[in-house]
Design a protein around this nucleic acid. Sequence first.
DNA 1: TAGGAACTGGACCGTGCAGTCCAACGCAGA
DNA 2: TCTGCGTTGGACTGCACGGTCCAGTTCCTA
Lengths: 203, 203
Amino acid sequence: MRHVAELTERGRRTRQRIVEETGRQILAAGIGGTTLDDVRAATLTSKSQLFHYFPGGKTELVRAVAEWEGGQLLAAQEPHVHDLSTRASWEAWRAALVDYYIGQGRWACPIGSLATEAAARDPGLAATVAGAFTAWADLLAAGVVRMQQAGELDASVDPRRIAASVLSAIQGGLVLSQPLRDPWPLEAALDQALHALDAPARG
Amino acid sequence: MRHVAELTERGRRTRQRIVEETGRQILAAGIGGTTLDDVRAATLTSKSQLFHYFPGGKTELVRAVAEWEGGQLLAAQEPHVHDLSTRASWEAWRAALVDYYIGQGRWACPIGSLATEAAARDPGLAATVAGAFTAWADLLAAGVVRMQQAGELDASVDPRRIAASVLSAIQGGLVLSQPLRDPWPLEAALDQALHALDAPARG
DNA sequence: TAGGAACTGGACCGTGCAGTCCAACGCAGA
DNA sequence: TCTGCGTTGGACTGCACGGTCCAGTTCCTA
């Protein structure tokens, strides 16, 4: 006997298909530019399915997308983002990240692009987005700490500030790169931010 | 005898009122979240006036806003942005900029917030936005050159890359600060980016 | 002071889109 | 095979919003 809102395997797959396709459309056209009819057509589903799996409508769907994309974004940085204990590891991480954005034709951050639109429309979504940023920043800050522990970095630098400035370089670099359709601002900003890791430990 | 599309003083004021109010609404709610009816109500005008001054409709209005905001943004950085020949001048510029964004309750960049939404919806607008970024970056790069000429900065650093990374720090810092409603990521990113100016000239 | 152009008010229209509703299908377990 | 829930299809509704239209007013200029 099943209980409320339980999903079968088929249901889970359909739901997931909707989330991923909506994510693609939002990245390309923004929340406002993404219509449920477009999603319905692209996923070969029907209106009733959309509201069956997301009773809260578009708002709930977008939040599900935010959570999914947040996870994907961190997954794309594995395994480097859990190392980051050497300068070489940071470079490997950097390469994976640039490939995720530019190499795979995203040209924007799935989370970052939600941030601006979310802040105005949906406070709950803004909280989800802020949470994704915090989780990400924590991973980077942990890497900075690891570099300090390994004796490769001056212990006086603040890991949280480094993490925030690296994250800002990514987001801001994408803002500049996107309309120019050229990765160089992203790369310049990222490299500049990573120079903060070049302060050797004081012997 | 007047000619086509000439504006009287009254007309110019009305038009300007529409542009500024639309700018406020776009910053708060995005392009998609801004309706002509809201603008009409807030400016105490009528639909016909909106289309009288902007025959191209919302698209043309938004472009006018982008150009106006671009100018305002640079104006807010005066007179510092035309100096930037000393480290102190950069700090004064930094303070003016943070006040423009945070002190005046914007919490987002009028141009940066357009960038993401524009890239998807309106290629012409994206070009305008890219132009605004370029003009801004040119001013910063000129400042870097002035520091180099004054002998305060190593001549080997690339002014364009510095300018791009500082601009990215601003835009990305705002992306992080906005949902958190806290200026610290913006300030951390900006300060980190400005460290690039701390490379003394090689004697 | 008359003519005309710039300016203004607001009713009206068409459409695109979020969300509703209900009937039908399919796949388990009893 | 029956029963019931999870699942699916798609027509339908309400309305918000961009855009049109035209009549009326203000104000410059000759």
